[in-house]
């Protein structure tokens, strides 16, 4: 199998493609494959030249932390949830998420997600109590990994200048439905930084590893006067 990886030595250097020839089990995930490749003392590219190990982020390796989000064969996905058996053909391309600054190789700086939430005071302050009708929706929204896949695939998200994307919208929903103190402010933030910029491609819904119903969050938030 051919593995092409877009590598980059530092935030300021230029990216370059590097190709490897690597065989691994069809049951392996892309994350497991990267681990296997990095476990080699001498990692060699397809031409037999020794190259540095590949830098990428990982923590849980089972789709629960969002660290290993990257672009796999052109599609944003979690590497630990993408199985080799589901790759079409014999070529895997791996790129870092392109809408975030690259730190090194496949590792990117996603801190802008948290920065915008902080800037918009995305917190509950005083919890108004549970609402059984909202439980299933809140439970799913509470599982957001802040992995950035929804922002990567969104046609409207261009680096968070004004439009903050689905991760922001779902947190707005979580706050609006559970906070009396903060609901007006968060609705305004939602209108300014999500509703005004969303063209409803809903690509974010399909790509979300947690299956968060962003459309339902939008419906709820949009209904609020």
């Amino acid at each position: 199998m051919r593995v092409r990886i877009l590598r980059q030595e530092s935030p300021d250097s230029s990216p370059y493609w590097q190709e490897f020839t690597y065989e691994c089990s069809a049951d392996q995930t892309v994350a497991g494959m990267l681990e296997e490749m990095n476990s080699l003392d001498d990692l060699k590219d397809a031409e037999g030249k020794k190259v540095p190990h590949i830098i990428w982020e990982c923590s849980c390796l089972q789709g629960m932390c969002g660290a290993c989000a990257m672009v796999i064969n052109g599609q944003p996905a979690l590497a630990c949830e993408t199985f080799i058996r589901n790759i079409k053909g014999d070529l895997i391309t791996l790129e870092p998420l392109r809408k975030f600054p690259t730190i090194k190789d496949l590792a990117v700086d996603r801190s802008i997600i948290q920065e915008k939430l902080l800037q918009e005071n995305a917190y509950i302050e005083e919890y108004k109590g549970s609402d059984s009708k909202e439980y299933d929706h809140q439970y799913l929204a509470g599982k957001c990994l802040k992995c950035g896949l929804c922002l990567e695939i969104c046609p409207n998200y261009k680096g968070s200048r004004r439009f903050y994307g689905a991760a922001f919208a779902n947190d707005c929903y979580l706050i609006e439905t559970r906070s009396d103190v903060h609901k007006k402010d968060i609705k305004k933030s939602y209108d300014d930084h999500f509703a005004a910029g969303c063209s409803k491609s809903l690509a974010c819904v399909d790509v979300c590893p947690m299956k968060i119903p962003t459309l339902a969050s939008m419906a709820k938030m949009n209904r609020i006067k």
Partner: peptide, 23 residues
């Protein structure tokens, strides 16, 4: 419990509360 994702739901709540104090 919170379904079978108790730790995750607690992290989400604590992260929001920590954000309040970050502000």
């Amino acid at each position: 419990y919170c379904g079978a994702a108790t730790g995750k739901q607690i992290v989400t709540a604590l992260t929001m509360e920590a954000r309040r104090f970050e502000g």
